[in-house]
Amino acid sequence: MFDITQLLDEIKASPYEEIVVTAPHTGVVTFADVREGARVIGPSGTWKEKKGTLLATIERERNQKPIHAVEKGEVKEVLRHLEGTFVEAGTPLVRLRHFLSRDEVLAIILKKALHLFVAPERAKYYFAPDVDKKVKASGPRSVSLHEGMDLFIMSRMKREAGLAYSGPSGVIYAVYFQHNENVDAGQPLIGVCPPDQLSLIEDVVARVQTEWEERE
């Protein structure tokens, strides 16, 4: 199948990821007291209810909106020259260096281990109503898939079309799309785990859990 040890080693070789925090929309930026080299944390708490470190505030139409760090990491750059100016949507504000967490590593490896069902076209995807009900009620792993099953609604240019599943039978092990965002053609929508591979996948999970050390 694939070599998990090698994969892990590869990731260990470059365990960082640069995160660029951008302006979510237009507005006047005020930076919080963050310096280059400072450590920031992402959302925490049982339900991620505690926000991450405050990086900046952006004000638009007299509405101040805080911009928090979404992951923990180290501040590499703060674009201070933007302080107090009106910025366009998507303007980079802060750059962070983020050390991959266990879950992220797991996600990377699972993407290789699972059978991926990819988006045939760039579109927004939704689960078909009955699948959606199941996913919401008892989580994606409660959905068992089989060839030809109505799985998605593909919404593109205001038109909607059904999309049937094709691939091995199994359960939805991972969901890779957000309901309101476009998915490019060829990007995975879900990761499917056939029942006979369930134990293998669980092994992978266990390995990552034990072998990957989280760093600040």
Binding site: W47, K48, E49, D103, F127, D132, V135, I153, Q178
Partner: peptide, 18 residues
């Protein structure tokens, strides 16, 4: 009531529609 993720869900599950 603030919308928190239900316990046990570490990542937001895609919703078919809002």
């Amino acid at each position: 009531h603030p919308a928190g993720l239900p316990p046990g869900l570490s990542r937001p599950v895609a919703r078919a529609h809002p």
